[in-house]
Design a protein around this nucleic acid. Sequence first.
RNA 1: GCGCCCGUAGCUCAGUUGGAUAGAGCAACGGACUUCUAAUCCGUAGGCCACAGGUUCGAAUCCUGUCGGGCGCACCA
Length: 552
Amino acid sequence: MIKRRLSEKLGECFQRGIEAGFWSAAAGGAYVVEEPKQSTHGDFATNLAMIIAGREKKKPREVAAQLVELLAGEDELIARCEIAGPGFVNFFIQPAVWQSVLPEVCRQNEQYGLSAVGAGRKVLVEFVSANPTGPLSVGHGRQAVLGDAICRLLIATGHAVTREYYYNDAGRQMRVLGESTRARYLELLGLPFTFPEDGYQGEYIRDIARGMVEEFGDGQKETVEVTIFKERAERAIFADINSTLERLGIHFDNYYNEHTLYDSGLIDEVVAALRAKGLVYDQDDAVWFKATEFGHDKDRVIIKSTGEPTYRLPDIAYHREKFRRGFDWMVDIFGSDHIATVPDVLAGVEALGYDPKKVTVVLHQFVTLMRDGHQVKMSTRKANFVTVDELVDEVGTDVVRFFFLMRKADSQLEFDLDLATKQSQENPVYYMQYGHARLSSISRKAEEKGVARGELADADLSLLKEPEELALLKMLAAWPELVESAALDLEPHRVIFFMQEMAAQFHSYYNKQRIISEDLALSRARLWLAEGLRIILRNGLNLIGVKAPESM
RNA sequence: GCGCCCGUAGCUCAGUUGGAUAGAGCAACGGACUUCUAAUCCGUAGGCCACAGGUUCGAAUCCUGUCGGGCGCACCA
């Protein structure tokens, strides 16, 4: 918020400089105001003078001097300016400005950090979208938590978010699932059976079959149709997936069944629409989409010679529905193994006359699970993969969510079970939670001692002038902007890094300065600072869906 | 062979549309509990930002190439 104020002032000066004939408007929009890494370089710095100089063959430091001249008279905001290095202008903000942030934080409380940049835009976030063939694996887990955190960020920034889970309960995969279940059912009855070659070997199939034995006895042994087995399996597995998502604190607004696309004729409609535009042709008994028209290296089959669509066609039809349902922005969260489908879908919606730029695909890399210093090998088909449920059993929801979010989506994520299992010390989850607990505890302690912080209006915040205190106040001020950028860039990990930094600064401050002391006025000011920090930590933890404990 | 992602401290990773002397956690070593919670803090050590060119006032960041790792490249999803 302070940065924004400074940017506006700087913009005005830039404008006045143009009017005064110091420089042209060429540098407009090209310069930045940023926070220097080094505190000796001020609270903020701008490269404006260097940009102007570069465009107009002037000396950067001379331009900087003119700029500083124009900024004179802003001493309510700026304590002093310095020209440094190749032509940076460094700004030192008045301490009173930083202190003024605190009442704002405390007044807004839960609201602090929320914004309206989303302007109520309708966003559809599609994630997980696992077909009901088995329990959620750790890869799904990452996607589930990532998607949910992105949704929380988008909601916090004023977007109208719909969380959607897209699935397919028809198709070959599900048929194999039904056959696998039947095989186990017959096996349990001691009857001859043939297990499908690429069947699902997990123990959960046996559990489902056991349920069917209890329900039907041997009443289904003659059943040739695989439907009932498929349905029972699907129902049981979906219930399992949903309970896992529930444990992670994730709720979907909508489940979209691929089947509805067929039932309502939307698949045929898409083919007809593409055909009408001449973007589809028949060859070798199959129907091809002219992906080459959209810069791809080859055309793609959308209907096989068997008459069955490939996955591309429903995917395209589904995304067309997202547009037709009136969403302004569509976010797809996929595992990196689905990368090949992305260009096809985007070309498809473009072919149908929609703007593919309204679709943002977040691809996340895989999760490798480490235990006892070794990678846990996993194979989906076989029984030996670790489920999200097992992970939650082992380390709890907070740790699972935190670990899945602490890397950017682009990075492969190493989930170190040895580290995650540790209840103390080096486990990074507890660092922030402990910060929150400590802050809560201080407040309780103060009340016990009868030095409650009192009314905010009565506190003398100008007493918060230690370097550590000003640094903390700056972090409070930076919070809303951080939330906004993390949201718009769909990068929840930034929230974690910010909060870790803030918790670190607080812990350090705590060890150096006493909050509750003999000096009542100072105590009150510091207690309000503590309250501000607590608010940010709690709001931040809420954003990533991790609990903010009052004590630990 | 082609496309996408990645390569930063011993390990796991940050690094905001190109900015000033490249950071954190863990691991290692040495310290701090009579005091608001030591699940904490302070200090030390650790680097050719894979490599080579290029773009410019300025590159971990942008471009090209090379090497190394991951994921894809179906009339599977």
